[in-house]
Amino acid sequence: DIIVVALYDYEAIHHEDLSFQKGDQMVVLEESGEWWKARSLATRKEGYIPSNYVARVDS
């Protein structure tokens, strides 16, 4: 799995977006363009995230 960590807070604009806080970790489910589908490890919610707001966690 690709794990990313939030670099900034993000408040969902559309209902399919995923809100998150700086430091939150998410599993990337699908990478396509600038918006990635991800699942929050904390809340288990899924939605689209702006890929420029996150960084990959080296395992």
Score class of each variant (00 low, 15 high):
1 D>M: 14
2 I>F: 15
2 I>G: 06
3 I>Q: 05
3 I>P: 03
3 I>D: 02
3 I>N: 04
4 V>Q: 01
5 V>W: 06
6 A>H: 01
8 Y>V: 08
9 D>Q: 05
9 D>K: 06
10 Y>W: 10
10 Y>Q: 02
10 Y>R: 06
11 E>H: 12
11 E>R: 10
12 A>D: 02
12 A>L: 02
12 A>R: 04
13 I>H: 11
13 I>V: 13
14 H>K: 10
15 H>G: 11
16 E>M: 11
16 E>T: 13
16 E>Q: 12
17 D>A: 11
18 L>D: 00
18 L>A: 01
19 S>N: 06
19 S>W: 04
19 S>G: 08
20 F>C: 02
21 Q>M: 11
21 Q>H: 13
21 Q>P: 02
21 Q>S: 13
22 K>I: 08
23 G>Y: 05
23 G>M: 03
24 D>M: 05
24 D>F: 02
25 Q>G: 04
26 M>P: 00
27 V>I: 14
29 L>I: 10
29 L>W: 07
29 L>S: 05
30 E>D: 14
30 E>P: 03
32 S>V: 12
32 S>I: 13
32 S>Y: 14
33 G>I: 03
34 E>N: 13
35 W>R: 14
35 W>G: 04
35 W>Y: 11
36 W>K: 06
36 W>R: 03
36 W>A: 05
38 A>Q: 00
38 A>N: 01
38 A>E: 02
38 A>H: 01
39 R>H: 08
39 R>V: 10
39 R>N: 02
39 R>A: 07
39 R>I: 10
40 S>L: 15
40 S>R: 06
41 L>G: 03
41 L>S: 06
41 L>Y: 05
41 L>T: 07
42 A>I: 12
42 A>K: 14
42 A>W: 06
42 A>Y: 07
43 T>L: 03
43 T>D: 09
43 T>E: 06
44 R>C: 15
44 R>A: 13
45 K>I: 09
46 E>D: 06
47 G>T: 00
47 G>N: 00
48 Y>A: 04
48 Y>L: 09
48 Y>M: 13
49 I>M: 02
50 P>D: 07
50 P>F: 06
51 S>L: 06
51 S>K: 14
51 S>R: 12
53 Y>I: 06
54 V>I: 07
56 R>V: 12
56 R>L: 11
57 V>K: 07
57 V>H: 07
58 D>A: 11
58 D>N: 13
59 S>K: 12
59 S>T: 13
59 S>I: 12
59 S>W: 12
